[in-house]
Nucleic acid binder design. Structure first.
Lengths: 239, 239
DNA sequence: AGTGTATATTTACACTGTAAATAAAATTAT
DNA sequence: ATAATTTTATTTACAGTGTAAATATACACT
């Protein structure tokens, strides 16, 4: 007996595989992910998965892409909740708060995309870079808005040395030189929220501090204080 | 045939096991660590390791403790390279530079202790906390010195809410209330260097920036600028 | 109807951690 | 010196993993 006709019971098996994979990941961590256990839970055999994902790594990559999409959606939603001119700082704060919130809600997904994810898995960057860029686009975009308004105080931040041949360079929508300072500041901001959030998620912060929320808010305000200068109020000065 | 007499050839097998484990980790990552491959490389059988480490997790824990010791030694050596009063900021900078240097020299060890280490491994915090505290003691100590000199500008940093029953509380050498602000600032500083270093190590920074050194130096200076105020120069003001 | 392709199965192999029983070497006690 | 004991390694075994190969069936198209 081979291939009992299940085609009507499991319409899109590819999605089902990813779903149960997520379930197992959020339940017992990304480390115990196993093709056999996924197949067992779905009532199929393990090699059947190879029709949908050529590899275990291919499945992990698909999961990572989904995670980036979910993360990016949250980031953009938070930013777009404060539209209009004059509310750039609100947008920056909102993306910051949403960053930690999403990470705490999906700690395994966060570690899957921003930490060292899975044993032996090396992320295919050329495939992940687009979704990664898009997910961080909410932050970068807001920083760019502040820069355009002349309200970005980057200090003497070292500019990224991006060579034109680098693949990343082609992904910049507006690749003009003035954007480099935006990317430098974005990276610094990203690294700061990532540092605090990753320590909190991996359980190394609660050993010291209960309630990472207050510490995180303080850090967000420090970031705003360092990189944002007050509006120029040109009407008041010029006349 | 059982137990060929090898006792003279392998004096301290426990150390040899850890050494080859480190070799395999630095060679192909902490994920591909395998008791069997360690045994194979040492010319013994896999179950023999169980005489020295009750578990695979026990071996990983031993490795983590060693990594903390190595990291802590570097941190303290960097700090102690600038002794004497009036050089507190040099000590802070030195520990910061040494932090990144050690992490880049031992990326797998860094991820082993500060990232999500190994599949299915949950770190026994009550065992790791002492070495962890000691390794971060160089930073905390320097921050405490600055605080004692009245040069710490903590702003309105939220204080850690440590309950007296918490095990961490008993580990503080000087558990007076005034130290809480020192710990809060230390955590913030730690999270910032960790954020940048972990992004760089996991290969997510080079996609954007080549040369994380300049960015890291900028971040260290930002940290100093935020948390350290100029010395009071009492001789100049009072008379 | 017949053919072809997609999808699943079975089987198999090389790996992993680890438990149990066993045996020899090393140490200690008599 | 001989006997008993402990330490340290062995072999064997089991359950689990990813994945390659061959096979067989359901479905779609000609």
């Amino acid at each position: 007996m081979a291939r009992p006709f299940r085609a009507l019971q499991m319409p899109n098996l590819s999605e089902s595989i990813k779903n149960t994979a997520w379930r197992q990941i959020t339940e017992s961590g990304a480390s115990t992910l196993s093709l056999r256990s996924i197949a067992r839970e779905l009532g199929i055999t393990a090699p059947a998965i190879y029709n949908y994902f050529s590899d275990r790594d291919a499945l992990v990559t698909a999961l990572i892409i989904d995670a980036y999409a979910s993360f990016g959606d949250c980031q953009h939603a938070a930013r777009d909740a404060h539209p209009g001119p004059g509310r750039e700082i609100d947008r920056l704060r909102a993306t910051g708060i949403a960053y930690r919130k999403w990470a705490l809600n999906h700690p395994h997904r966060y570690m899957l995309i921003f930490g060292s994810p899975v044993p032996g898995y090396v992320p295919p960057m050329q495939e992940l870079l687009p979704v990664m860029m898009r997910s961080l686009g909410a932050l970068v975009g807001t920083i760019a808005e502040l820069h355009a308004l002349g309200r970005l105080d980057a200090g003497s931040v070292p500019l990224p040395l991006v060579d034109s041949g680098h693949r990343f360079f082609t992904l910049l929508e507006t690749a003009d030189e003035s954007m480099l300072v935006v990317y430098a500041v974005s990276i610094l901001v990203w690294s700061r929220v990532h540092g605090l959030v990753s320590l909190e998620i991996t359980g190394q912060l609660p050993q010291f501090v209960q309630g990472g929320a207050a510490l995180y808010r303080f850090e967000l305000e420090s970031i705003c204080r360092q990189f944002i200068r007050a509006p120029e109020d040109e009407e008041k000065i010029i006349p």
